[in-house]
Design a protein around this nucleic acid. Structure first.
Ligand SMILES: Nc1ccn([C@H]2C[C@H](O)[C@@H](COP(=O)(O)OP(=O)(O)OP(=O)(O)O)O2)c(=O)n1
Ligand SMILES: [Mg+2]
Ligand SMILES: [Mg+2]
Length: 424
DNA sequence: TCAGAGAGCGCC
DNA sequence: AAAGGGCGCTCTCTGA
């Protein structure tokens, strides 16, 4: 990683022969900001306080995709007068962006984790119950935000290893909050979709990306698989197109929790009309979700509070006030908290069941970590499969048997492996 | 030297 | 209009 950082720095300095040079040497984001305002670029994005934004999205817009096969140069091209200089500027900005990503990996994860290891090379965080919704949070270090999937290119999760002779069981709910949304809004089409099966985020990914849809249609990969039927005959979409599915997930929850056409257009690089069409399409066969949102906001406005699935409440200061931005934020919180908090309700019940499980106790499996809708257990490797089944059973049936169940099943994806990375 | 604010970014 | 929600950490700058 250090070498990669050095290489990227060198690349930036080399490419930055143009007037970006001064920027690069210190390579702090603040210097970029300063330079951007003096360049008088047509810089769409600004921060709260009115300065030009220097986040990855802003740099990407300036840089374009200068390293792709037919290169696409961003808005910095013209700002630097085009030609070779304009191209160099775009390449420099792209390298700067890459360097920022490497820097984040080093400063936030790779270096601090090594300092925090105890005498047996294990890491211990605190888990706190201090959130607005009833989720847990994790600190010193935060183990709930370790790089995942394509972002984990240095295999940080591979450094989380079971003790010798032991194995990890990592179990994560499938589309948890979408299932809860289906239940709480009593949305017919969503409930039916979950009954039919087929990973919801994967379906969204098919709709978003032609290459993904084609891969499903020609059998290159499967939408989903029921592992009680044995091994799948082809790879799953989730594994073959992990990053596309992750983008689909982001889109699903963004829309469900109140993303506007304005925000969609900005984040996904589509026109306002296209963004409106995305919203229309998402809600078209889910009118119950829209109605539930209206009702929930109305009730929150009347009472100044909102409630989770199991009735815990959150007050929403400002939802009755005159500040439009604050009010809008609280309205979105009013529709998110019942679901996110409801998911926390479910996970809490599941963790109680897991803690009370005689089987897990006898097998010697202990809970190491919770990541909102995921748990990680560790225990004797030879018992891992048995433990995995028990973890899945506890999580899929978190409620007391005499309580009414949800309109949808809870499905848990669980794997055993010796590292967190392999257990994906 | 220290605390707080902003910006930015990692995860769910 | 701070234009999905929920977190914690690092870095920089500022003012006491
Ligand atoms: N960008 C995101 C990612 C996640 N979540 C919330 C909703 C998810 O249901 C929950 C758990 O995150 P997961 O990454 O586990 O997502 P899912 O459970 O929905 O999907 P998967 O089937 O991949 O587990 O966190 C969210 O609000 N916004
Ligand atoms: Mg999940
Ligand atoms: Mg998860």
């Amino acid at each position: 990683a250090r070498e990669a950082a050095a290489a990227a720095t060198a690349a930036v300095v080399e490419a930055g022969g143009v007037s970006l040079e001064g920027v690069i040497v210190d390579s702090g984001r603040k210097e970029v900001e300063f330079e951007l305002s003096s360049l008088q670029l047509e810089h769409a994005k600004t921060t709260k306080s009115g300065w030009p934004a220097t986040d990855a999205a802003a740099l990407r817009e300036l840089a374009g995709r200068p390293s792709e096969d037919p290169p696409v140069f961003g808005s910095a091209y013209g700002a630097f007068g085009g030609g070779e200089v304009g191209e160099e500027a775009c390449r420099a900005l792209e390298a700067l962006c890459q360097m920022g990503a490497i820097d984040t990996m080093l400063s936030n994860f790779i270096l601090p984790l090594q300092d925090l290891a105890d005498g047996t090379s294990r890491i211990h965080c605190s888990l706190n119950l201090n959130t607005e919704t009833g989720r847990l949070s994790s600190r010193t270090p935060n183990l709930q935000n370790q790089p995942a999937l394509e972002k984990d290119k240095y295999l940080i999760r591979d450094a989380f290893v079971a003790a010798p002779g032991k194995a990890l069981v990592v179990a994560d709910y499938g589309q948890l909050e979408l299932r809860l949304l289906a239940h709480m809004t009593a949305c017919t089409s969503m409930v039916e979709a979950f009954k039919l099966g087929g990973d919801f985020h994967s379906r969204t990914a098919m709709g978003m990306f032609d290459h993904v849809r084609r891969a499903v249609e020609d059998g290159t990969c499967l939408l989903d698989w029921d592992y009680s039927q044995g091994e799948p005959p082809a790879p799953l979409l989730k594994d073959l197109f992990g990053s596309e599915r992750r983008r689909a997930k982001t889109l699903n929850f963004s829309i469900a929790y109140g993303k506007t056409a304005h925000g969609l257009s900005k984040d996904w690089g589509v026109s306002i009309d296209e963004a409106k069409e995305m919203l229309r399409a998402w809600y078209a066969d889910r009118p119950e979700v829209l109605q539930w949102q209206k009702d929930t906001i109305a009730s929150a406005r009347a009472t100044g509070a909102t409630r989770t699935l199991l009735g815990r409440y959150r007050t929403l200061p400002g939802i009755q006030g005159r500040n439009g931005a604050v009010r809008a934020h609280m309205e979105r919180a009013a529709i998110n908290t019942p679901i996110q908090g409801g998911a926390a309700d479910i996970m809490t019940l599941a963790m109680i069941k897991l803690q009370r499980s005689e089987k897990l106790r006898e097998m010697g499996f202990r809970n190491l970590l919770q990541v909102h809708d995921e748990v990680m257990f560790e225990g004797p490797a030879e018992l891992a499969d048995e433990a995995r089944a028990e973890v899945v059973a506890c999580m899929e049936r978190p409620f007391d048997e005499n309580l009414p169940s949800l309109l949808v099943d809870l499905v848990v994806d669980a794997n055993t492996a010796s590292t967190w990375y392999e257990a994906k």
